[in-house]
């Protein structure tokens, strides 16, 4: 049986796992944005708090992924819960750092003008600072997504969803005739998702970056 024959026999499983993988990554990313952007907004003008927050997020990224997923079983049990939380923790640094960098790189004269014209603080943030920082933040999201796509495969180890299950099954049945096919399917699914997400981000970037910005 060739790889293609094998794929024809289980492609629905692969499709389901791919979809679940994408959803898992998006959940982690979404939570990271919900936490990271407000934290960035709250700390980017400060000195020590910003350094501390970025340092902490950086620390999270250094925890070996197997260990992190495992450690989360105790408080969160098995399945989707610990998987999403672990992915959120990994995505935090790229999201947070790019949001801070984007906000801090703004032309001070632009922000000062906004204040000097009588915009309130929330208005400056929502209509000037965040739209101007958006391209940098979006780059952070793109990087975080690529990072999470790979790490999300570990979720299978804590009974989480996604393509990791194919890879894990393949590894578990090593030695049987088609074991490698399963693992290859899992990896190809991740590569496919990486390409699709990248295209999506490129499109999003083009659609949402204000015309006055960019090259």
């Amino acid at each position: 049986m060739t790889f293609l024959d094998y794929f024809a026999s289980n492609w629905t499983d692969v499709a389901d796992a791919t979809l679940a993988h994408a959803v898992l990554v998006l959940q982690g990313l979404g939570l990271a944005v919900l936490i990271g952007v407000p934290v960035a907004v709250a700390t980017y003008r400060t000195g020590a708090p910003r350094t501390a927050v970025l340092g902490f997020a950086g620390l999270l990224l250094t925890i070996p992924s197997y260990a992190l997923f495992g450690l989360l079983i105790t408080p969160l049990g098995l399945g989707t819960g610990p998987s999403v939380v672990a992915l959120t923790m990994y995505a935090l640094l790229p999201v947070l750092r790019n949001a801070v960098v984007g906000l801090r790189a703004l032309d001070p004269a632009v922000v000062e003008s906004a204040r000097a014209m009588g915009m309130t603080r929330p208005r400056v943030l929502l209509t000037v600072e965040l739209p101007l920082a958006w391209p940098v933040l979006l780059t952070g999201l793109r990087v975080a997504t690529q990072l999470l796509l790979g790490i999300a495969a570990i979720a299978a180890a804590v009974n989480g969803p996604g393509l990791g299950n194919l890879i894990l099954d393949g590894l578990a049945s090593a030695g049987t005739p088609y074991a490698a096919y399963l693992t290859v399917e899992g990896c190809l699914g991740i590569v496919l998702l990486a390409v699709v997400f990248d295209l999506l981000f490129a499109g999003l970037n083009r659609l949402t970056t204000a015309k006055g910005l960019g090259a």
Partner: peptide, 23 residues
């Protein structure tokens, strides 16, 4: 209120400070 005060005072600076994302 400070934002009301500022709306009554025009402000122009050397680097223009125009919003690059707005027409």
């Amino acid at each position: 209120p400070v934002h009301e005060l500022r709306r009554r005072i025009g402000y122009a600076i050397q680097s223009s400070g125009l919003f690059p994302h707005r027409t």
